[in-house]
Nucleic acid binder design. Structure first.
Ligand SMILES: [Mn+2]
Ligand SMILES: [Mn+2]
Ligand SMILES: [Mn+2]
Ligand SMILES: [Mn+2]
Lengths: 223, 223
DNA sequence: CACTCCTTTTTGATTAGTCAAAAATTATAC
DNA sequence: GTATAATTTTTGACTAATCAAAAAGGAGTG
């Protein structure tokens, strides 16, 4: 239970663990963690041990890692900072939604609670970031909405874009240029299972996305 | 001329060198640099060598250090970021002038040029930060005003507070609580050379400062 | 010039985070 | 169930930044 500095590196590991344990089952593999952070498996193993030592993660060697409650709380707070910062950059500094992720990725580690509190207030206590990701509350609660991956929608469905992954800046630019912004209503024209693609009517144009790309978009069904 | 990462540490050394070479003569001693950064002289020596190696400083051993033009330009840009951030925190996020320095000290190393440009625009291209320090222009020019240390003012002089050192948060709180804010007009009642103190009339109250404290305030003369 | 004092530099160690490559372990195939 | 493949862990090495303490250098005094 050695005390551990909450460096940017540590915070990034915690955030990656939170994300990876929410998608898929639960335990996170060393390899997946290493890939997510663009480090070698050896580096990941060594940080996993450090986190376990500090009581922020459980580690069963050769099996997997999982955040402890303490680690989970810290991770959620980093995510909260990240998303509030993103929204602030878009709403107050009028930055593009495709450039704020990289910026927030740095700022999330240095901005004080005081600043986050004031941004939160100025933004009117928002619940969603510019990409439709939920902003956890100050006491660490996520309000998840029941959304559906666009990749799994059926032909004929009318849906509303509710969330787009912020991980890929150029995909965001592409999406926006074809009217795929938050709140936009689109209609699924057809699916092609063999081609693994889905074709949509957005604005006046028809656009076809591979399933992998479509998977980066989540939607709400429209009446 | 080895390429050097511009880490927070390196930027802080550059900033300290800029500051120390402007006040007093020119060359900076290892000891002063070490004191300014709260590191041991050995650490300072080692970073000085690194900076010299990277072409950011000239170093004549046992004599002193000085920024090269390249190092000077980098340092000024860090100062620009610092001061724009401070003003942004006060004007947009409504933080107190005594809490923004510590915050800016972190943010100055991670905020992108894009963000600085937008803050600058939103603030209306300001020339002074919340403590009256000049904000260098984007191309690195300082506009220095002809100010006078309050510590050297004579009895009877009416002066306007134009600049207060931001290094000491509690001094800023103290100053504000006695009406010593930017633009405030005060009158020097008397000096006591033996006590090394100066007594002022500010608002309705009389207040006495030691020369060292008074030295942290710069003023303009009022007709 | 020689001695002292102060400052600077050097040396050796430490910590965080990383990688490359070897070793160990678990999973898969036959 | 043994061989092979994939994953994970370990080991050894490296870099940035630091400190403590020893060594070296410079300035002033007599
Ligand atoms: Mn993001
Ligand atoms: Mn986001
Ligand atoms: Mn400051
Ligand atoms: Mn300032």
């Amino acid at each position: 239970m050695t005390q551990l500095m909450l460096t940017s590196t540590v915070e990034n590991y915690l955030k990656a663990l939170l994300k990876l344990s929410n998608q898929g089952e639960n335990r996170v593999s060393t390899g997946d963690l290493a890939k997510a952070l663009h480090v070698t498996p050896g580096s990941a193993t060594s940080m996993i041990k450090t986190l376990a030592e500090a009581g922020l993660a459980h580690h069963k060697p050769h099996y997997g890692v999982l955040l402890t409650e303490k680690g989970h709380i810290l991770a959620v707070h980093v995510v909260r900072r990240h998303r509030i910062i993103e929204l602030f950059l878009v709403n107050v500094l009028e930055m593009e939604w495709d450039e704020v992720h990289a910026e927030a990725e740095q700022l999330e580690h240095v901005v004080s609670d005081e600043v986050i509190t004031r941004m939160d207030k100025l933004l009117g206590y928002p619940t969603l970031d510019p990409h439709g990701d939920p902003i956890p509350t100050a006491d660490g609660m996520f309000i998840e909405r029941p959304l559906h991956p666009l990749s799994q929608c059926e032909a004929g469905q009318r849906v509303q874009v509710a969330r787009i992954s912020d991980q890929n800046s150029s995909f965001l630019k592409f999406a926006e240029s074809h009217g795929l912004t938050l709140g936009a209503t689109i209609e699924v024209q057809r699916r092609n299972e063999h081609a693994e693609s889905i074709t949509l009517q957005s604005n006046e144009e028809e656009i076809t996305l591979g399933f992998t790309a479509a998977n980066r978009i989540e939607v709400e069904f429209v009446k």
